Amino acid sequence: MDRLLAGFHLPLVALRDETPGFAVSLVKAGARLRGQKVGGVRPPLGEPTADQLGRLERVVADGLALVRETG
């Protein structure tokens, strides 16, 4: 649990906290990264920047790797 908190949850929360109302944007962006067909967010919410998407991709990959390790 500590490894999942440190390696996935806390980095995701830090990314989410960069922009007010970003939780929905990140969940949708994460779903798209995993191949799900979801639309964009509606104003006033905004989409993650290219840098934020790259960081989200790493956070998701790290989280999935941790889950596989505990499998």
Rank of each mutant, 00 (worst) to 15 (best):
R42A: 12
R34Q: 15
L33M: 10
P48K: 01
R32P: 10
L26F: 02
V24A: 10
L64M: 14
L26Y: 04
G30C: 06
R55Y: 04
A61D: 13
T70D: 15
D17M: 09
L45A: 08
G39L: 01
R16S: 14
D51I: 02
T49I: 05
G39T: 07
T19K: 10
L45G: 02
R3C: 05
G30F: 03
L15P: 08
L10P: 00
V60K: 07
R55A: 05
V38N: 10
E57K: 13
M1D: 11
F22T: 07
L66R: 13
E18D: 13
K37H: 12
G46N: 00
T49S: 14
Q52N: 01
P44F: 02
R58A: 15
F22Y: 14
V67H: 06
D2H: 12
L66A: 09
P44L: 06
L12A: 15
E69Y: 08
G63R: 15
P11F: 01
G63K: 15
G7R: 04
D62P: 02
F22P: 06
G63V: 03
S25D: 05
V60P: 03
E69S: 14
K37L: 15
T49G: 00
R16Y: 03
P48T: 00
S25G: 13
R58N: 12
P43S: 02
R55G: 00
R55F: 04
E18H: 06
T49N: 01
A50R: 11
A14C: 03
D17H: 12
L64F: 12
V24K: 14
V13Q: 07
V67P: 03
E47M: 02
F22V: 07
L56N: 03
E47H: 02
Q52D: 00
P48D: 00
A31Q: 14
V13A: 09
L10D: 13
V60F: 10
V67E: 12
L4I: 14
D62L: 09
L66G: 08
A65E: 14
E69I: 09
F22M: 10
G46Q: 03
V13F: 02
A50T: 12
V27W: 12
L4V: 13
E18C: 09
A14S: 11
K37I: 12
R32A: 09
E57H: 07
L15C: 06
D2E: 15
V13T: 08
G54N: 13
L33P: 02
L4M: 14
D51G: 00
E47R: 04
E18G: 09
D51E: 12
R3T: 13
L53T: 05
T70Y: 15
G40A: 06
P48V: 01
E47Y: 05
R55S: 04
A23Q: 11
H9D: 05
R68I: 06
L53V: 07
A14M: 08
G71Y: 00
L33G: 02
A14E: 14
T49H: 00
R16A: 15
V13M: 08
R68E: 15
D51V: 06
L53R: 10
A50K: 09
P43Y: 01
